[in-house]
Design a protein around this nucleic acid. Structure first.
Lengths: 175, 175
DNA sequence: TAGATTGTTAATCGATTAACAATC
DNA sequence: TAGATTGTTAATCGATTAACAATC
């Protein structure tokens, strides 16, 4: 449950966006929140791993609306290299370093297995990637405390559901 | 940071699994946690929406290890109906009701747009689905407070990253 | 017994909520 | 002025952490 109080408190962390006694200018507020989230400027991003999940995320048309621009996609499978994804030709691992040096992407979307992320992490960080959207189980902050990583733990998520479904009827009134 | 204290406290919610002064039997503890999470028994599940995301989740080989068994996949695109996904032949929307009545799946993986979920929610609940792994922005608990739904909000997740990347250097020492 | 480790209660911390002041 | 609504401080709640008791 989101209370009015919480919203006021949260907004207040970033400033006052309304007028007491009058209200909020919704359009303006929306724009301000966009600024705060940083979605009004696009950070250049690369996709690592062009399997089904990679495709799903790359084609998610509003990446741009969420503050990122996909400028390249990489995969290590010869079958996939050269194919097209979201309008980009998939590159191989050997092209990664030069590409990053030339185009300086700041964010990487990681749709490869945990072991592969573990191998690649150091390289990517050295190449100047500062933000990771990490779909693997690799723990960036354990090894690199200062790196910015947002993790999507699908395994945890589905086990949460397993727990909930398994224990569904336990709290019910027994009369 | 996960402290030893927190782990002991958390385990204690479900019972005592160790022996004071001696330690935990790791293998046994692992099994007990599996029981608690309900991953040792498979709940029958269906996939709704066989796009890239649906494929990624269906092929995630350890669905079974996480407590679910995928028994059918549905899509409303004639191009996809009849094709194969994770060893299952994709069914059309017209087959949904009969299938659920006959095989009684308990969980649905929703990889369709929010509007489509909104349309389908009532039907699925009436057909006996009690748990949802929801990748759309549809809010189950607002409309159905008692339904079990675990949401994966990819949009929120990437905007969190946008915020973090945008504000990267703000807390840094300025000397 | 001393050391080590879990179980459990108490203290701390942070986030949420409520209350009130400020302002239209 | 009265009503409404935001800004901001104070109170409450829950989760995390620390402390200690129990036990090997």
């Amino acid at each position: 449950m989101v209370t009015a109080s919480q919203i006021r408190q949260d907004l207040n962390c970033f400033g006052g966006f309304g007028q007491q006694g009058y209200g909020y200018n919704v359009e303006l507020l929306h724009r301000e929140i966009g600024e705060i989230l940083g979605v009004s400027r696009q950070t250049p991003a690369i996709l690592i791993g062009c399997g089904n999940l990679g495709h799903a995320l790359a084609n998610q048309q509003d990446l741009r609306k969420k503050g990122f621009e996909l400028i390249a996609a990489f995969d290590n499978s010869p079958k996939i290299i050269g194919s097209e994804i979201a309008g980009l030709k998939v590159k191989g691992p050997d092209e990664l370093a030069n590409f990053c040096i030339e185009y300086k992407p700041k964010m990487a979307i990681l749709c490869i297995p945990t072991a592969a992320v573990a191998e690649l992490a150091d390289t990517l960080i050295n190449l100047g990637i500062v933000g990771f959207w990490n779909f693997s189980s690799y723990d960036f902050n354990y090894n690199y405390p200062d790196v910015t990583a947002v993790n999507v733990h699908l395994s945890d998520s589905i086990m949460t559901l397993s727990y909930m479904v398994t224990h569904l009827h336990e709290d019910e009134d027994t009369d």
